[in-house]
Amino acid sequence: MRDMLIVRILFETGIRASELLNLAISDFNIGKKSILVRVSKTRAGENRTVYVTSDTINLFQDYIIEFHSSQTNIDHVFFNLSGKNKGEQMSYWGLQALIKRLNRKAEVDFTAHMFRHTCATQLNDKGISAVSLKNLLGHAHIQTTLQMYVHPSDETIRKHWEQAISHESKE
């Protein structure tokens, strides 16, 4: 359940791994289906709101009920479930180890950061404005978002080309 929640949040929001690990329970707004990213490696990324689906909010609630019992005295959403550091905030290296295990299980090679690129590309393909995408990803400059994080597929490029040609032929 924890691993699924981690993947869903990374995939749907495009937040950085370090931002994920710093999420507190109080950062989740269940009614608005949003998450406040308070801690970021960039000033532009701090105190921004990202959004998740109802399914992810439901999974978050189930996870909190299951793993954040009254015996757990930690506000961080993600913490070590076993080992010598059980109950402590999950570290970056702990997340990397989890991703490595998921790679083996899924027989797919991916990193936590790839979810950021995938999220940016999918939102761009669905027509989100460049400014909104920049703000969701927590970038200071729109060029970073568009040049580094958006990777349009051949289908998207063709669709945009066809739209441009159809406008031209109508004139």
Rank of each mutant, 00 (worst) to 15 (best):
L21S: 02
S18H: 14
N124W: 00
E171Y: 13
D125S: 12
T145Y: 03
S166C: 08
N29C: 11
I30N: 05
E168H: 09
T72G: 03
I57M: 02
R2M: 04
S91M: 06
V77A: 09
A97F: 15
K41T: 10
V108F: 12
H151A: 08
I9N: 03
G14R: 00
I15R: 00
H117A: 03
I57T: 02
Q143T: 06
T144P: 01
W161P: 01
S40R: 11
A140C: 11
E88W: 04
I25Y: 08
E19W: 06
L146R: 01
E107Y: 06
V150D: 00
H113E: 13
L10S: 00
H151K: 13
I25E: 03
E171T: 09
R38A: 06
R48E: 05
K134C: 02
H113L: 11
K170I: 08
K134Q: 12
S69K: 07
E19Q: 14
A24C: 13
S169Q: 11
I35P: 01
G127H: 05
L98E: 06
D27K: 05
I30T: 05
D154P: 07
Q61E: 07
K33P: 04
D154S: 12
S69W: 12
D3I: 02
Q143V: 11
G45F: 01
L95T: 06
K105N: 14
V150E: 00
P152G: 10
H113A: 06
L146G: 03
S82F: 12
M90A: 04
L23M: 09
Q96I: 11
D3N: 13
H139T: 08
L137W: 01
I35E: 01
L81S: 09
N29D: 08
S153L: 04
A164K: 11
K41H: 15
S26D: 13
F67L: 14
F60A: 03
H160M: 09
S18F: 10
H76G: 11
F78G: 02
A106C: 15
L20V: 04
R104V: 15
K170Q: 13
L123S: 03
M1S: 08
N135K: 09
N135I: 04
R43E: 10
N103V: 02
K105D: 13
N73A: 15
H167W: 15
I165E: 10
K126L: 04
K134R: 10
N47P: 15
A106P: 12
Q147H: 14
S166W: 00
A24Q: 13
E88N: 08
E171I: 07
K41Q: 13
R38Y: 09
S54K: 15
A44N: 07
I157N: 12
E19G: 07
D75K: 15
Y63C: 09
S82Q: 14
A112M: 04
D27V: 01
L146K: 04
I157C: 08
I64N: 06
